[in-house]
Nucleic acid binder design. Structure first.
Lengths: 162, 162
DNA sequence: GCATCCAGTTGTATTATGCAACCAGGAGAG
DNA sequence: CTCTCCTGGTTGCATAATACAACTGGATGC
């Protein structure tokens, strides 16, 4: 039961290499980050939850898209997306236009207000990150960015997300 | 509006250095990770949400603690912790013992079952991470772990959590 | 010994979410 | 052309996590 007694630290699991220890640390720190992110996901902006922010961001990158695309891309139920989009529309941040080619489809567009809010929130987040990372060297920043990108890239292949 | 038009990419915000670009990437990737973590936080184990897992982990590290400590440490309401602990107790994973020194207090302990489940979930997560990071060099793993730890460390000073 | 503080519980509201049922528009077979 | 099936989207319902507020019972201080 030694492994069970201290799984968060350097649990004595036979022949573990330094790489294993690093993986352990990465797991722990990612868990910490995930928990904190979860806790604050709802209040990143009075008007924009993490999900809304993501949807808005996607909308801006793609210019236009359907609700179903968002649902598929972010592994959300279409009903969830539908309600989120409704809320965003009520807030005047997105617009639903019927697609002349397929009347079932509602093409989503960012409104000017949506673009503005999105830019605002993005800027606030950017400032927060800049502050957090203020004392990092440029070299460390670049490497950290690379690692994160590489880490996230595996999601294209697998499904999980812890 | 150029900055607003492409805030997710290399937005043209005047004199941005390579460091700024890296911060931008870090923000974006952290957002992606946070969203994914949020999506899968509830189903990491049939019996253990991310929060329960965290509480159990804390309990194991500290050996014993009060519900109030958990609430303070994780910025949760005491009622939330109370209910979570109730659920964990109902599931037989933790035990509540009255504190003889202060009858208001209920000292929480992991049960054997709790320890077992926790070890199990931790091992599953560890395996998932190991797989994700399988093709990383040991050098990269160590640096990534260091960066993540350093990044998370700032939380001791500030409050936010996007 | 009363006033106050603190640990924990419970009631209520909110929010995000998924699933299932449904509706309306399209696409293909006959 | 019409019937059937598919698909995008909405809505009804249930659930889970959470916060806030009110309350209970024990501890502490003056």
């Amino acid at each position: 039961m030694t492994a069970a007694a201290e799984p968060h630290r350097a649990g004595a699991v036979r022949d573990r290499t330094a790489g294993d220890a690093a993986v352990e640390t990465i797991q722990r720190e990612m868990t910490i980050f995930a928990r904190r992110a979860r806790a604050s996901a709802g209040r990143m902006h009075p008007e924009l939850s993490l999900v809304s922010y993501t949807l808005l961001g996607h909308l801006e990158e793609s210019g236009r898209c359907r609700a179903t695309d968002l649902a598929a891309h972010y592994a959300l139920d279409k009903s969830t997306v539908s309600r989120q989009v409704s809320a965003l529309e009520r807030a005047g941040l997105v617009e639903r236009r019927p697609d002349p080619d397929d009347l079932r489809v509602q093409v989503l567009h960012l409104t000017a207000a949506g673009r503005r809010i999105l830019a605002e929130v993005t800027e606030r987040r950017r400032a927060a990150f800049r502050e957090r990372l203020a004392d990092w060297s440029e070299e460390d920043l670049k490497r950290f960015a690379t690692y994160l990108t590489r880490y996230n890239a595996w999601y294209g292949r697998s499904q999980d997300g812890s």
